[in-house]
Design a binder for these strands. Structure first.
Length: 441
DNA sequence: TTTTGAGTTGTTCGA
DNA sequence: GTCGAACAACTCAAA
């Protein structure tokens, strides 16, 4: 059993199939191509998840570094394995890697069995009547519901082969004070049960409030597959439509990326490629200020600092900081997407990059070009008391709610140690709208 | 076959 | 202060 993004025992079709009548060797390959671009927080989460899985396997998980197409045939030969089981991966890198692995295993007479995926409905399954993939979310959602999905699979009983001890690297050096969630299959289950019993009925009203702990925080567990979306969907009541739709966004973007693998890096709508961006020293300075949470706009800076401190950012704030990068700083969405991918513990290529394209106006179902987030209004609306800003920006902690989202209006003068706004939102908004109009001709 | 209406996440302006 | 209109263009499915 080759574990990848499905680091769990229960509801794991590939594992159930592998265990059916055979002893099983559990393997995880630390592929340098995936390890290299990961920031320390995400690597720490991965290693901790692997340790949790290793415990579930009574210490029998094999963890090996190297390119999978090199490593797996060796492991199979050493273990006398006749088949490798895993879930399907629909991402651009994963599907190319799996083709190479299939070839390498074929050369040594080992069969390669792929079953299941990290999604309730495999990408490519939901089609329009014409057979074409959907480009608009709502029709996709209806068709996805109609398509339906399997009930969660029961956990298999597995005879794990005793093997070498896992060689899971030590956690990388983390920023002091970094707060990471508990991970692993048991922790994922506990987090989900807690959300089901305490959070989900407030979700539709409060999910946009970064000052409250009102989201499910399931993204990191879905990222590593310590819980399957099927299991979540099976627990939802009909009234939990809003949460079900969020799970469907993840499936929609995976479907879009499957049909358009280039859209991970390239503009989904290529006509937006012509947008002008700032460059040179100005661009470098702006990007650095945005990344460090020193733009002078409190809700933006709070979000960027939360990202560095937790490897996670509230979804509403992700939209705000993304809009700010693209529409206010006039930097390309790819720069923001790359920063998110490096630092998010839940980083998912499809959801991340298509979310960015949505904000930039170049994606499927893209935001209309005139929808520019005003960081002050967004702050007042979604962090009304300023608690979120206070939590992440100590320089502003003394400010009352009335001015905390526009500290430059504080009658006591600008707060010490906190930057003045690096751009004027109203002017940059006008510039962004003018750029879009010019592009349309 | 053509038409029609609806479609995640907003802001500003003028009445 | 509140409220509706305007700010495009295109996809999709139902009528």
């Amino acid at each position: 059993m080759w574990f990848r993004r499905d680091l769990r025992i229960s509801d794991n079709p590939a594992l159930s199939l592998a265990a059916n009548g055979s002893d099983v060797l559990g393997v995880f390959v630390l592929d340098p191509a995936l390890v290299r671009p990961s920031g320390a927080p995400r690597l720490a989460v991965l290693y901790r998840t692997l340790r949790a899985l290793n415990e579930q396997l009574d210490g029998r998980l094999v963890v090996q570094q190297g390119a999978p197409e090199m490593v797996l045939p060796q492991i199979c030969r050493a273990a006398g394995a006749t088949a490798v089981h895993c879930a399907r991966d629909f991402g651009p890198y994963g599907s190319a890697r799996d083709s190479a692995v299939a070839e390498a295993l074929g050369a040594v007479d080992v069969s390669f069995v792929q079953v299941g995926s990290p999604y309730a409905v495999d990408p490519g399954e939901v089609r329009k009547g014409s057979g074409e993939p959907y480009q608009v979310y709502t029709p996709f959602y209806r068709a996805w519901l109609d398509h339906g999905w399997e009930q969660p699979h029961r956990p298999p009983s597995v005879n794990w082969i005793a093997a070498r001890t896992a060689r899971i690297p030590h956690d990388p050096v983390l920023t002091p004070g970094l707060r990471l969630p508990d991970v692993g299959e048991a922790a994922a289950g506990r987090a989900w049960k807690a959300f089901l019993s305490q959070g989900i009925d407030r979700y539709s009203d409060e999910r946009d409030r970064p000052d409250l702990d009102s989201t499910s925080r399931m993204s990191v567990h879905l990222k590593w597959g310590t819980i399957h979306p099927r299991s979540l969907l099976a627990d939802l009541e009909p009234r939990h439509e809003v949460y079900r739709k969020e799970l469907a966004w993840r499936e929609f973007y995976a479907d879009v990326l499957h049909h358009r693998p280039d859209s991970a890096r390239e503009y989904y709508h290529s006509q937006l490629r012509g947008l002008p961006y700032v460059s040179g020293e100005l661009a470098r300075a702006r990007l650095a200020a945005w990344q460090a949470g020193r733009t002078g706009y409190p809700i933006v800076d709070a979000g960027m600092r939360q990202l560095l401190a937790e490897g996670w950012m509230h979804n509403r704030v992700r939209m705000i900081v993304a809009s700010f990068l693209v529409k206010d700083l006039h930097l390309e969405w790819t720069q923001g997407a790359r920063h998110f991918l490096r630092h998010l513990i839940d980083a998912d290529l499809a959801s991340n990059n298509h979310g960015w394209q949505w904000v930039a106006g170049s994606g499927t179902d893209a935001a209309p070009y005139f929808r520019v987030f005003n960081p002050t209004l967004q702050g007042r609306k979604f962090d009304p008391r300023g608690d979120y800003v206070r939590r992440w920006i100590p320089e502003l902690a003394h400010l009352p709610a009335k001015v905390i989202h526009e500290p430059w209006t504080d009658p006591n003068g600008p707060p010490a140690g906190y930057p003045e706004p690096i751009v004027d939102h109203a002017a940059e908004r006008d510039a962004a709208l003018a750029d879009f109009r010019a592009l349309r001709g």
